Simulated scan of single mutants.
Amino acid sequence: MFKFYKILFLNTLVMGTLIAISSYSWFSMWMGLEINLLSIIPLLTDPKNIYPSESALKYFITQAMASSVLLFSIIMSMNLNEFLPQNSYFWMLMMMNSALLTKMGAAPFHFWFPEVMEGLNWANSLIMLTWQSIAPMVLLMYKNKMTMFVTFIIMFSAMISGVQGINQVSLRKILAYSSINHIAWMIASMLNSLTIWPIYFIVYSVITSNIVVMFKQLNVFYLNQLFNSMNESKMMKLLFILNFLSLGGLPPFLGFFPKWLTINNLAANNFFAISLILIIFTLVTLFFYLRVTFSTLVINSNETLIYQKSKNHFLIFFTNLISLAGLIVCTLILNYF
């Protein structure tokens, strides 16, 4: 049963994000972020989560700290001429950007993200991976003037997500480090274009949603649970593997499309070093995606010889078909522009 308080707080969660991204003043944007934060805390304390109190408390403390820094930097930048010398604007801008990067979980401000994810169920994990990145990402786009600082963040996020993700056996932590890697790509796509990152975000959200829905359907949380989890449906196993390849950005799948646009944009504006680092460390993330998929594919597992008619999950198959065939559609559409 879907409880009333969940509907209420989901609505205010969406409303907080919309207030933040559509405001004209920084103070209203901060207020939208606070509404968003206070709405997700009751959802994180859901008893279906594995560690509800721990995740909610870690998330609240980190976000409250980031909000305090953001509000402080907004107030100080408004009164900059009265109290502070002119060169302080750089530091105010750095504080503001750091607070927003902490809110979205970009490295090196990512310390809270995998820990919070580890205590959640799959429904809340999906909100954390997708929706919660929208408001900070848009606000960062408004203040995207510090190219050197942002470049450092992109490189750090790509490296940390690649290196730390290898060592994980929890599927939620793997998706959390995957998200940090994609955040690096999204911030890189913002450097010279404001139109690529929404495309990237939508594609990333579709692929992640497909993967999370499959994990929720199979009720798995760790790598060793995947061995026998997909023996009933060969189609589900195939879609699962193809989705992870799509998330890694391999060419025949939709996940390659936004990476293609981002690399094209970076190369056109002479950001060759960032492109190289992003590509190299995305290959590292692809390695642990393959480890997840190979555990379902090549490890010996007990499979019954008696045919059992499994349920056809039409919605899962349909969304996967759109996701996996999307690159062909996008390429055909772009040819007409």
Rank of each mutant, 00 (worst) to 15 (best):
N121T: 02
F294M: 12
K237H: 03
S301E: 12
M96Q: 08
I211V: 09
T195S: 13
M159F: 08
S28L: 09
Y177L: 11
N269W: 14
F113P: 07
L242G: 02
F201D: 03
F109I: 05
K143C: 14
V298R: 00
T62P: 07
N192Y: 01
K6I: 15
M1G: 15
G16Y: 00
L332K: 12
I274M: 02
I299M: 09
L171G: 02
Y307I: 15
S39K: 15
N87A: 14
V284P: 10
F256W: 07
A20C: 13
A106I: 00
L247V: 09
G248M: 01
G105W: 10
N243C: 10
N270W: 08
P258N: 08
K103A: 01
F294E: 11
L238H: 08
V292N: 02
F271H: 05
T331V: 05
A64I: 12
N224L: 06
R291S: 12
G162E: 06
L18E: 00
N300D: 15
N265E: 13
S189G: 06
P85W: 07
N312F: 12
W91G: 04
K237P: 01
A325S: 12
F109K: 06
T45E: 14
M95V: 13
Y142F: 14
I183R: 02
I35T: 13
A107M: 07
N124F: 12
L100T: 04
F288E: 07
I322Y: 05
G249F: 09
L254P: 06
Y59N: 02
V206S: 01
I211F: 03
V220K: 04
L100D: 04
A267C: 15
S68H: 05
T296Q: 07
S193K: 00
M104G: 01
L327M: 04
V203K: 03
A107E: 00
K145I: 15
L297V: 05
A66R: 02
I211C: 01
L223G: 01
V116M: 10
S133P: 07
V212M: 00
L71D: 02
I160E: 05
L10K: 01
M137H: 03
S275I: 12
S68F: 13
L327F: 01
K311R: 13
T208C: 07
Y89N: 11
S125N: 13
F156E: 06
L324N: 14
C330Q: 08
I279K: 06
N124A: 13
L70R: 02
G249C: 13
N302F: 10
F253T: 03
M236W: 05
N219W: 14
N264P: 10
Y289A: 04
W260R: 14
Y89K: 07
M128H: 02
L140H: 09
M78I: 13
I187H: 07
F201Q: 00
V329H: 10
N219Q: 14
L175T: 01
K311C: 10
Q164H: 13
F272I: 15
L276Q: 11
W260A: 11
Y5L: 15
K173G: 11
I333N: 07
G255Q: 10
L71M: 09
E303F: 14
E303L: 11
S205Q: 13
F60G: 08
V69C: 04
F221S: 09
S39Q: 14
I50F: 01
K103M: 09
A64F: 11
T319W: 00
K143G: 13
A135S: 02
E54W: 12
K234P: 02
L332E: 06
E82K: 09
N269P: 03
F314Y: 08
N265S: 09
G105C: 14
F215V: 03
